[in-house]
Design a binder for these strands. Structure first.
Length: 405
RNA sequence: GGCCCCAUCGUCUAACGGUUAGGACGUUGCCCUCUCAAGGCAGAAAUACGGGUUCGAUUCCCGUUGGGGCCGCCA
């Protein structure tokens, strides 16, 4: 059985590169019907912080990466285990002490290297090998920055007489200048995407496609990725992180997101509209239409506002249309009153008839009305605005606009 | 510098050794049109270079160039 793992060191938040390594390891394990484990490598006592471990755990959960081990091993708590293996190496004359630290003897192509620090902590090289063995990890997916460490790790396995795992080194993620993504960039950490309300499925999807592809497909569910992903088919060259494409993927998920999926983000206007839509089917259609135009939950929230609330309409844009309001609005009110059946088609027909009579073009008609009715310039098409607002509400808002001038 | 890894449109990627080298993001133009970081359509855009192997190379081999990584009592 394939067993992979993700072993971050809790010295910072979960980085994009780490997230993708975790994702690949998870996906590959599940693809092979194997297991995926999580472990914390906190042998650097100076820089490791419990809050970072917690943050990494939260980000992984958010992404939808689930590990199969019930307890997450922390290397700092496993000293006696490492000690045992160190004793074995000492007994077999593979390791020796120097200035309070322990070194492993290398070979022709490998210099002696330190495995136990004088502080009493194992080094990364030692702990990683012991832990992977103890946890049964047989497939290691990690960044190419570990490539040259592999010689040391293999040698360690040999000295210990343990089976050597399969290694896959995945390329780094780089920025627009092909340089490694700086950890200082705010968008290079996972918590940025969580806090900015990206859909985790979208981020998951985007990272899976960064270094891997399947035919002409762009959008994959987690299940599809598990089915299709194979680490052996991943690209070998560095992948450039493209926030614009991530955004595009996120928009694709926004378009199809169910009310339940959106609700949890707690946006006031959206949630109000969802609440209304539970009783009223047209509101459901409205929400869906708005989702097709919005590019983020924040924007969707703005776009929902005119449709749930008629007391606090934003009137700041009204000034631009003062002339229109005093000249046309009274007639528009009559027009709306006379629309017999409140359907998109009927609204469309009557509005056009009206414009013909008044010799008005859509350009002169639609934007002023849109602003008067919604307070916004970006919204649905005019017919839909009228339709979803409802006859009474439209008339009400037109009357109020009249008073505004 | 030493050791190692990599190389398809600007970017992410497809292509059992035989394809008009495909898709997506971005970009350009057009359409829709009343708004748009929405939608539709169309276009420009790539096999780094040089040698082999082969009837045939994006694909296999070698070299060059270019990019990257590692060379910590960090992980």
């Amino acid at each position: 059985m394939i067993i992979t793992r993700f072993a971050p060191s809790p010295t910072g938040h979960l980085h994009i590169g780490g997230a993708r390594t975790a994702l690949f390891s998870y996906l590959y394990a599940k693809h092979c019907k194997g297991k995926f484990f999580l472990r914390m490598e906190d042998t650097d006592q100076e820089r490791s912080k419990p809050e970072f471990a917690e943050s990494i755990i939260q980000d992984l959960k958010w992404l939808g990466i689930v590990w199969d081990n019930d307890v997450i091993p922390y290397q700092s708590q496993r000293l006696t285990i490492y000690q045992k293996y160190l004793d074995e190496l000492k007994e077999n004359n593979f390791a020796y002490e120097k200035e309070g630290a322990y070194f492993l003897k290398g070979h022709e192509a490998l210099e002696d290297f330190i495995i136990f620090k004088s502080s009493g902590m194992p080094t990364f090289h030692f702990a990683v090998v012991i832990d992977d063995h103890e946890m049964g990890v047989n497939t290691i997916i990690r960044g190419v920055d570990h490539l040259t460490n592999t010689d040391k790790h293999r040698h360690l396995y040999k000295c210990l007489g343990l089976p050597i795992p399969e290694y896959y080194h995945i390329p780094l993620i780089v920025d627009e200048n092909s340089k490694p993504l700086s950890k200082r960039r705010n968008d290079s950490n996972m918590d940025y995407y969580r806090e900015n309300h990206f859909f985790p499925e979208a981020v998951f999807n985007y990272f899976a496609r960064l270094g891997w592809g399947y035919q002409n497909q762009e959008i994959f569910s987690k299940e599809e990725l598990i089915e299709l992903f194979d680490v052996k088919k991943t690209s070998k060259n560095p992948a450039r992180f493209d926030p614009r494409k991530l955004s595009w993927v996120n928009i694709q998920y926004l378009k199809i997101a169910s009310p339940d999926k959106i609700k949890i983000y707690g946006y006031q206007n959206i949630n109000m509209l969802i609440k209304l839509s539970e009783k009223e089917n047209t509101k459901k259609l409205l929400l869906n239409e708005l989702q097709q135009k919005a590019i983020s939950l924040q924007e969707l929230n703005d776009m929902c506002r005119p449709f749930i609330d008629n007391k606090e309409l934003d009137t700041t844009l009204f000034n631009e249309y003062g002339e229109f309001i005093s000249a046309i609005i009274p007639d528009v009110i009559e027009l709306v009153k006379n629309i017999a059946s409140w359907s998109i088609d009927e609204i469309n027909t009557d509005v056009h008839k009206f414009m013909d009579e008044k010799s008005l073009g859509m350009k002169e008609m639609a934007m002023p009305l849109r602003v008067i009715l919604t307070g916004q310039k970006k919204s649905l098409d005019l017919n839909s605005i009228l339709f979803y607002l409802g006859k009474d509400e439209v008339i009400d808002r037109l009357n109020r606009a009249k008073e505004f001038v």
